[in-house]
């Protein structure tokens, strides 16, 4: 190593004052540039692999063919992804409400927590594939079944994290509310819930990563007209460009949804 630690120290010294300046000037722009660069690299790699190994079109289409399919099926793709995202949003919202209610009840009574938690875990570990026919029987082949599946998958990580967050209130803050003569509801709303928000958002983030996929799973089983069904149909026609147009759309939506929850977390719990 030429120079040794001394040279390293002197070459590092002027760096810190420069960095924040550069970041402040182009913080948002570099984020967008990075994203576009990443997309460009993926598309280029995709094209390169197909070109190099001469992958036949019935296994993987070229980016150009997928873009073409995207344009020609644009309206169908938009209405499909809107359908799926609607079930994701409604499902996540319902899961959040149910998770907060149950986690709140758990802080009220440890006995209830010990009685109900095994039941919740059973519901979570049972394969959706097995439960779906029952859900379809109850809720039909429409949006409600998709919502129910999203709720079942999302509920658990939100509930576990919310319960942990609601249980982690500083004891002094609870004593403060008690001395102030606060009701259970006031303590929950003014102290417990705000202290738990970072945990709740961790749960939402964990759940959001899988929420789009679980909505698509529900569509494969129920045939509801979302992006999952769009992909399945294209696949059964061996229409690879159309299928990949659907897959790319669902992946972008899932990433966007994940980014949205991360942003919301920064705003509300940062």
């Amino acid at each position: 190593m030429p120079g040794g630690p001394m040279a390293e120290a002197t070459s590092d010294a002027p760096a810190p004052p420069r960095r924040p300046f550069a970041m402040a000037r182009s913080g948002r722009l570099t984020g967008l540039v990075k994203l576009l660069l990443a997309v460009a690299v993926i598309v280029a790699l995709w094209q390169a692999i197909i070109f190099w190994w001469q992958v036949p079109a019935f296994i993987a289409p070229t980016p150009g063919a997928v873009a073409g399919a995207f344009v020609s099926h644009f309206q169908e793709i938009v209405s499909s992804i809107a359908y799926t995202l609607r079930s994701v949003l409604l499902g996540m919202g319902l899961a959040l409400i149910l998770a907060l209610i149950l986690a709140g009840l758990f802080t009220l009574s440890p006995l209830l927590s010990r009685a109900l938690l095994p039941l919740v875990i059973i519901l979570r570990t049972a394969p959706i594939l097995a439960i779906a026919p029952i859900l379809i029987l109850i809720f039909g082949r429409g949006l409600t079944t998709s919502i129910a599946v999203v709720v079942m998958v999302s509920f658990f990580p939100i509930m576990v994290n919310a319960a942990k967050g609601l249980g982690s209130t500083p004891p002094n803050a609870l004593e403060l509310m008690r001395v102030a003569g606060a009701t259970w509801g006031q303590t929950f709303h003014k102290v417990r819930l705000p202290y738990a928000l970072p945990y709740v958002f961790t749960g939402i983030r964990l759940a959001s990563a899988g929420a789009v996929l679980s909505a698509m799973l529900a569509e494969w089983l129920s045939g509801a007209p979302g992006i999952g069904t769009f992909i399945l149909e294209a696949s059964s026609y061996r229409d690879q460009p159309r299928m990949w147009a659907g897959v790319v759309t669902s992946v972008i939506s899932a990433v966007a949804f994940f980014a949205l929850t991360t942003q919301a977390e920064r705003r509300l719990a940062g």
């Binding site: 500083p170 002094n172 004593e175 509310m177 001395v179 003569g181 606060a182 006031q186 003014k190």
Partner: peptide
């Protein structure tokens, strides 16, 4: 009853005035 703890026990997301107002809200 007013109680002052060993550590301040302020709610970190509330401003000074909002912290003081807490017992009034309750």
């Amino acid at each position: 009853i007013g109680f002052v703890f060993q550590d301040p026990t302020l709610l970190p997301w509330r401003s000074v005035v909002e912290n003081i107002r807490l017992p009034v809200e309750v």
